[in-house]
């Protein structure tokens, strides 16, 4: 598969493919080679989405004329954190350099084109509509700042959830500074109001139980995934939620959970040792890629197919994840080192 190399630098170049189907085919050809390696797989996802976006821009320009302003196309969720499995849904947004009144209509059309293109390439539409085709996720820089302020002022579960989703955003195309600017705005707001970080922690405080009182893993009891553990909810999320909170507290622009851990481990002793656990879970999930046929499949690992050693590792990772989140929450609630 040939990719436009300059996309990696954020520049907007002509696409290498003339149809989304062709990108899908290229993805299918390549995915088997990279699926077992989480890092390679996420690099490949970036390339596939880049190509899809480039083609979407090309198609929209041929219909509606040139892109009217500088913009940043960013990804969020597991894509933003570079923690995608073989299959992943869409989570993305756009920031443009200009006012909504003038340009939002154009960029929403671009968001729609990207959404449809990605769906063809094999990325299901986000059920929660976290996509650049939705007005919430497609704004000019000024309106983005306004929206962040509104999210914080409204102080609702939904608006805080939007903000937490946004914090995992990572630029794929365009200028980094547009996104960095909004994030800095968030960090400033949170650091100036001690209550906000605590409210954000409450938003994700529900932890799914991974082990029972006897220390046994808790796989699904019913349904098509009987015997499999929901590794996303049980394994990854406590780490993701904890490190996102620390990233906000520390004003980190890094989005990957591993990077966030590396950047904070020296300051927070409870982060120590957690990097290996998280890596182990990423590798464990990747090792089952052959069983992953759909987006839903990637969230599960079959417990009965795990070796004794893998079970031990997973149990330890689940336990440590819970500890990490609890310690982080405790820190946030105590307000220590914040103000």
């Amino acid at each position: 598969m040939k990719f436009s190399p300059s996309f990696e630098e954020g520049a907007l170049l002509p696409p290498s493919f003339d149809s989304y189907q062709a990108i899908k085919k290229a993805r299918e050809n390549e995915s088997n080679k990279v699926a077992g390696d989480p890092e390679q797989l996420n690099d490949a996802h970036d390339r596939w989405v880049l190509e899809t976006t480039a083609l979407a821009v090309h198609r929209l320009e041929s219909e509606r004329g040139q892109v009217p302003a500088h913009f940043t196309f960013f990804v969020m969720g597991s894509s933003g954190r570079k923690e995608q499995a073989l299959w992943s849904d869409q989570d993305h947004g756009i920031i443009f350099d200009g006012k909504d009144d003038f340009y939002q209509d154009y960029f929403l059309s671009l968001g729609q084109e990207i959404r449809e293109g990605m769906a063809i390439v094999g990325y299901p539409r986000c059920e929660g509509k976290v996509m650049a085709s939705h007005p919430r996720w497609c704004h000019g820089i000024h309106e983005w700042r306004q929206q962040v302020d509104e999210w914080l002022e409204k102080d609702k579960w939904e608006t805080f959830r939007h903000l937490l989703t946004f914090i995992d955003s990572r630029v794929l195309i365009g200028e980094e500074k547009l996104l960095a600017n909004i994030k800095e705005h968030v960090f400033l707001k949170v650091s100036s109001d001690p209550r906000l970080l605590e409210r954000l922690a409450q938003n994700t405080s529900y932890l799914h139980k991974g082990t029972n009182a006897f220390g046994k893993l808790l796989p699904e009891e019913k349904g098509p995934y009987t015997g499999s553990l929901h590794i996303k909810d049980v394994g990854f999320f406590p780490y993701v939620h904890a490190m996102r909170l620390l990233a906000i507290k520390e004003g980190l622009h890094d989005t990957s959970t591993l990077q966030r851990m590396e950047k904070t481990v020296d300051k927070y002793s409870f982060v120590k040792g957690k990097i290996e656990n998280f890596k182990a879970m990423l590798d464990l999930r990747a090792s089952f890629w052959k069983y992953h046929q759909t987006y839903e499949d990637v969230h599960y690992v079959p417990v009965d197919r795990l070796t004794k050693e893998q079970k031990k590792t997973l149990k330890a990772a689940v336990k440590e994840g819970k500890h990490l989140f609890q310690q982080t929450r405790k820190l946030v609630e105590s307000g220590e080192g914040l103000w």
Partner: peptide, 9 residues
């Protein structure tokens, strides 16, 4: 029950 014998709720 599913084809593989696993139960549904």
């Amino acid at each position: 029950y599913n084809k593989d014998g696993s139960p549904n709720e």
